[in-house]
Amino acid sequence: MSNMHRIHWFDQRIRGGHYPSSRDLALQFEISRRQAQRDIEYLAVSLRAPLVYIAKHRGYGYEDKTYMLPHLYMTEEEKSVLKFLARKYGEYSTDAPSGVQRVAHLLGRFAGEEEGEGAGRLPYFDADPRLIHISGQLAFAIEQRRTVHLHYRSENGEFREDVCPVRLLSRYNADYVAAYQEHEGKTRLYRLDAIESLHVTNRMFEINEAGDVPFVKGRPPAIQPFTARLRLDRELQGEAWHGYPARPAGDGFYDIDFYDDDAFLQQLTLGGWLNLVSPKWLKTKLRNRCGQILKCLDGEE
């Protein structure tokens, strides 16, 4: 649905008091009447524009003159930045995770990319207004910690239940909300496209523990850091030691996370610690490094 520029034009025509019709829209952009009609519907339904058909002028106007097209007005420069970004994301490796592709598409849509015009191999998503709306409601509920009443249809049948939404996620090709179910006492995933309807209640909930969200194992895995256990020469204020995340391990010892062993070794050579307990390989590496330096110092080859 890369019709934003048409919507924009239509909006401008309304503001200019020209009472544009679907015919005008079709003629202006050389599209079919049906496509033009769909654009108008989109404006009215998804963008919640207060459109009203004025029979006298055989065209449309806004009931509420103060209506503004939400977030869709942007300068050519902004559009070109988005187009650039969309292309960069879109060209990001053929095995790119779908999250990247979605970003690419979203950016492209805002920039009003025409299909085929340099859109190349950007993935294309049917922007289901209903999904977007449900997603929005859930995001609100998550933020406000509100219980949600769901009407859900799955292969096990239809049911209604109250859940506490915790997180929205995208996995592979579908969108889910992770929600805690009070009487079952566990968190499960609900597909957004299986939600018939939902109602955000006024009840708030507390989540005490994170709970294990199923299917999360499928997420492209993140690299784990190495962890060194060091006894520092002074108590640490805050949660980092020279920028490395650090957790107290008792008795003046800290567990410090790092990814780049060479960089961390360099940090170690600057001192500030009294004892390196683990990992063993790091100790060996540091010892070898020091050994080499000493050899040079002593003039050995």
């Binding site: 784990q224 190495f226 062993d261 683990s278 990992p279 063993k280 390989w281 590496k285 070898n288």
Partner: peptide, 21 residues
């Protein structure tokens, strides 16, 4: 090394092995 839960990997460029958790 089970204690550190790591593998030693040679990449053919440096004498020092890379460490993979």
């Amino acid at each position: 090394d089970d204690a550190d839960r790591i593998f030693y990997v040679q990449d053919g460029y440096s004498a020092e092995s890379k460490i993979v958790l």
